[in-house]
Design a protein around this nucleic acid. Sequence first.
DNA 1: CCCTAAATCATCCTTAAGTATGAGGGGAAA
DNA 2: TTTCCCCTCATACTTAAGGATGATTTAGGG
Lengths: 151, 151
Amino acid sequence: MKRFFIKNKETILYGLTLAALLFLLKWLELRFIIIDYSFELYIGAIAMLFTAFGIWLAVKLMNPKTVVVEKEVYVKDFTLNEEELNKLRLSKRELEVLQLMAEGLSNQEIAGRLFVSLNTIKTHSSKVLEKLDVERRTQAVEKAKRLSIIP
Amino acid sequence: MKRFFIKNKETILYGLTLAALLFLLKWLELRFIIIDYSFELYIGAIAMLFTAFGIWLAVKLMNPKTVVVEKEVYVKDFTLNEEELNKLRLSKRELEVLQLMAEGLSNQEIAGRLFVSLNTIKTHSSKVLEKLDVERRTQAVEKAKRLSIIP
DNA sequence: CCCTAAATCATCCTTAAGTATGAGGGGAAA
DNA sequence: TTTCCCCTCATACTTAAGGATGATTTAGGG
């Protein structure tokens, strides 16, 4: 119940405002008849009022622009950035290949180390480059280190 | 004169819109009298119209709200190991090439960055690999980082 | 002035890296 | 059971990297 109110806060507020305005209208209508205000003036007032209301509503609801400010944090030793690692969606094998790449091993050497064929490592390394959004292994290593995915 | 129009574009637009709406109102007024639309419905339409107008105006004119999000960037601290660097006897240019290698640049990109030909960079990089006693650039970068010759 | 190291560029060649695509097996989740 | 992802491997191809060698120019030290 409470959550319903919170969720629909803006809508309810809008409704209540309209209701309040209807009262105001009725009152103005009476005055309009009695004191003979000009119809145009009355409409003008309504227009002004709702223009203001629209502006208020837009200001309330408008999406804020986000500005990302990078804050440098100096660290001595390596702590795995799991958040970034999860974002990249690297498979276990792909991460292994990336780590061995970072040690400066060739694809052939990596294949030997993991007891699989050179072609398999080529497939993995291509996937790694793709997922890291780079074109060469040196870039991949640089980016992975920068993101603290590998030491 | 032209600049005046440009400068007050929004204000003029607002004025013209109001004028157009006055026409609309007059027209609606006639219909209101003739076909006997309910007064509340008419007011409601006006209210909706100007609410929308207000929203449009606000979106047009408002400076977007900015939200600053701080993103932490982890930077490892680096102190140059001059002793090791001297031992390697790398020339100034070779060190430059090594540094750009470490940033993940290709030989072609390094050539562009240093305003020399690809062949020149190939010569330099070969010398770097030789002096660092490695066979691939990934190894060179790994070793140079390990020896604290580059960050 | 001569010698040397550095920097530049070139050619020719080999090997490694990377791209594209397909295919088959296996395991986990729907 | 079917679907989906991972891992494996293969073929064929293009591009980048690396090795060997030689030439030219320029700046600095003896």
